[in-house]
Amino acid sequence: MDYGCVILKKLGRREMTNESEDDLAHKILKDIKAPSDLGLLRCVQCGLCTSMCPASRHSEYDAREIIKRVLDNDESIIEDEIIWNCFYCYTCHSVCPVGNSVCEVNQILRQMAIDKDVGKKQIESFMSFADSFLEEGLGIIPKEYHGQLKIDYGKHWENLQENLQEVREELGLDSMFLLPEAKESVDKTLDAIGFKKRVDSIKEVRNRK
């Protein structure tokens, strides 16, 4: 008869040593994206974020639950597809009574996922954006999705894409492209800051099964 042990196995244990600051919440707080006054540790799970959140309204995603799992130091959340449902609309960020931001926590979690293959796979279909930026210094709608867009937007949109230069001229607008030397310095900047390496490593995931 050994009831005690069975129960004890389920209990967490908070060691008496100085509270370690390498848990998920503290990693997030130290991230470059985290504002210095991010209220992550002040969260009382009131649920205001969830009740205003469009992703929570339309999917299994639950903004409050994201924070709960972070505070529980549940690292499996990094690999959980659910973090990819946030719209980055910042509604939670703008109303949180304790100054937390689920939106920004999500952005950090996704970057942590991108450090692993699981995250790279989520974004590899957007890599034409990176290519465009490296070539032109301009953002674009990712080419990978043009197929569906042509269906949704119809022939008019294709006409627009094909005749964009003339349309812009009719409107009296200058070229939308950067000056050649500016393009070059964008490319140099992105090389210097390590973005090119990042792009290559994300693209590599395509070669792994």
Binding site: R57, D62, R64
Partner: peptide, 11 residues
Amino acid sequence: VRIEDTLTHNK
């Protein structure tokens, strides 16, 4: 009223 019951996780 739009709310999440945070005890039952019921949105």
